[in-house]
Every structure is written in C-alpha cells, then in structure tokens.
Design a protein around this nucleic acid. Structure first.
Lengths: 213, 213
DNA sequence: GTCTATAGAGGGATAGAC
DNA sequence: GTCTATCCCTCTATAGAC
C-alpha cells in the first residue's frame, strides 16, 4: 500500500510533524533562545536522539517552522480570497465590507499562541537578513491577495477606494496585526481579540472604501 | 558641592547608566535571553562584579531598562505636543498635518536599534503580565498625548475628525510602529525608514482628518 | 565600588546501543 | 529511527581580594 522505502515510511514524517507542533508551542511560550531541545522533545513524547535524527539543529528547525507557518498563512488567505471570488458574494457597503475582510484574515491559529509565534518569528527576521527576506515576501504575498479581494469588492459594489489597492491592503494587515497584538497583551481570549479587531476595522474600512457609483 | 553620601557619589550613577546604555544595545542586537551579562559589561568597560553591585540580575535590569525607555518616550512626546500647542502653529490642512504628526512621533533613538529594543520589550510584555500592564499603560499615555494634539489641530484648523480622537491616535501609533518595523526589516536606514513612514502617513492622515467648513 | 576566581547548573550536540 | 550516556562549553551568581 504505502511505499516502504526505508524503515518507518510514514512514521518519520509523523515524528517530524509532532516535533514541529511541539516546537511551535514552546517557541511561542518562551522564545527560541529560552527553548531547550529537551523541552520540545518532552512535549512531543520523544528524546533528543529523535530530534537530531530529524533536524540539524534548533535554529535549522526554527527556520523550517517559520517557513511552514508562512506557507500556511499565504495558502489559507489565497484560498479564502479565491473562494470568496467564486461565490460572487462580493457586493458590500462600506459597513458590511468589514465582515468580508474578517472572513479572509481570521486565520486558524491566530490565537494567543499564534500571535506569540508570529512575534517570535518577526523579531528574528528583524535580526536576520535571510529571514527578513522570507518574512517580507510572505507579507507581500498576503498583501497581493488582500489587494485582489479589495479590488473585487470595490468593483462588484460600485465603491471607490480612497487609496491604491496595495496601500489599502498593507494598511489592513497592519491594523489587524497591531490590534491583535495589543488584544493578546491585554489578556483577551480568542473571542475578545476578534472583538477588538472588528472594532478597529469597523472604524478604518469605511474610510478606505468610500461609496461612489 | 555635590552630596558625598557614600563612597562614589556620582560615579555609581555613571556606572549604572553606562551599563544600561550598553545593555540597551546588546538586548536590541541579540535579545534578552541570548545576552550574557559578560557581553554587556565588556561593552560598558566593566566586569561582572560591577554589574552585580548595581543590579540584582539580568532580568531585573531588563525591567528597569524597559521602564526607563517607556518613561523617556512618553515624556518626549508629551513635551513635543505641549511645545506645539504653545507655538500656536497648529493650523494645518489634511495634507500638512502629516508633518505635525511626524514632528511629534519621530522620537530620538527610533532607528534600527530602537525598533529592535522596542520589539524585544514588546515580546516580553506579551509573555509577562506585569510587563504587559506597564507596556499598555505607556501605549495609552502616548495615545492620550497624540489624541490631544489631533484635537488641537482639528480645532485650530476647522477640520473634522473621521473617527473619535482616541481611535485616530491609536491608529496613527499603529501605522507608525508597523511601518517602521517593516522598513527596518527591509534594511532601510534612518532616513529611508522616515521616508516610508511619511508615505504611509501621507495616505492615512488625510482620510482621518477630513476638511469641513 | 570594582576586580578575579570559582562554584554550580544547564543545555547543545554527538556516539553508540538496540 | 529512537534511546541512553556523555562530552564540553557557556553562563549566572557568589565570595573574597584590593
């Protein structure tokens, strides 16, 4: 059935994944430098031997995790934008456009741990040119997808954008990120954070999408 | 002249300050956890003995540094807002208001190292409730001052705000921070970063301050 | 008040058993 | 492929000299 190339064909992938999942939690909770390989292994139910059989080092694993998170986020947003475009449910007023933006940007794992993990990735990107390039590329890719959605909404609804698509998209991402961060810092849970983000967007989005037709 | 209470009256304060300055750099460059007390002392021109004579631990020093940075930022912004109000130079159009906002928010030390240090402080605040409270209080205080300035400008210029003062202020801070972070990550120098921030603000500010009478 | 020396703990990475 | 044992280095924090 499944291809049995080496010794534990799907076991290896499963181990890698369990280690990566555990690492995502620990990295988020205490940061890369304060994370011991042992603590990751413990949470995943392995010992250090398994870790070093799958990853060259703690840093290499962090890079892989960051890349994986970036891919997931971009793919998820792209899928939602495409889905939205396919549904043809893009008619909106400046007020109801907020819900569409929320539907696209409310990513899975964008809870307390997710925000912490993204913050951890971001600060390492600030210090590491290679990571910075990858981070900014993810940011641009997210921006392109949001810009596409914004453009679709404006076109379908006869609304005029107050700023160029790209700038609107970057602004939305920035408001989302900043508001989420502040909400998490204030101890809001997932619902409370969503609430604050919605309030922020409800203020900003109508200014960006002015009615015209 | 100066009060000679103990042994080295102003020498002690000078040592503390040199250690704090050195620590600010190292914390920014590599992060709290990757910082060794030794590296801070080396940069300040001392050895570990001097450090532990002045600070209880690395963490305690970080807290003190974070508090000091927060105080400076709040004080600087407040001083500029008050200065601006005193000058009576608050007449502005939606376009020229950008320069006033810039003049207040372009803080000293808001270069690459400053952004890194604030990011480091922020991520620890995300993980530490006590630091979070202090960080959010600084944020609110900055917001109050910006809101005051925004209100003054609108009143003096006969402009109408598109959103409540507080929300406008928070949005400006958020745009400032997000744009600066992205600019630093892209490797922009101080001038390049200012440029990007100005472009962002030039887009957003006119939407927030709509002309009326 | 600052320096040198050192104790003591922790963690990254490797080697070899199974 | 995973586990156990271990090497070795780094770092925090303290004790005592000056």
């Amino acid at each position: 059935m499944s291809d049995t190339t080496a010794t534990t064909p799907r076991g290896r992938e499963a181990t890698r994944q369990r280690l990566l999942d555990a690492a995502a939690e620990v990295f988020a909770e205490v940061g890369l430098d304060a994370t011991s390989v042992e603590s990751v292994c413990e949470r995943a139910g392995f010992t250090r031997g398994a870790f070093y059989s799958n990853f060259a080092s703690k840093e290499e694993m962090f890079l892989e995790l960051a890349a994986s998170v970036a891919r997931s986020r971009v793919a998820e947003v792209e899928a939602r934008v495409t889905e939205l475009a396919g549904e043809g449910t893009l008619e909106a007023t400046p007020a109801t456009a907020v819900a569409l933006v929320e539907r696209v940007l409310d990513l899975p794992g964008d809870d307390r741990l997710g925000v912490l993990l993204m913050s951890e990735i971001r600060i390492h990107a600030l210090r590491n040119p290679a990571m910075a390039e990858a981070f900014l590329e993810q940011d641009r890719e997210l921006g392109r997808n949001i810009a596409r959605m914004i453009g679709d909404i404006a076109r379908a609804s006869g609304l005029r954008l107050a700023l160029p698509q790209d700038q609107v998209a970057q602004l939305l991402l920035l408001v989302w990120e900043g508001t989420m961060t502040r909400a998490v810092m204030a101890g809001r849970d997932r619902l409370g954070a969503r609430d604050e983000v919605q309030k922020s967007l409800a203020g900003v989005v109508p200014l960006l999408i002015a009615g015209s037709d």
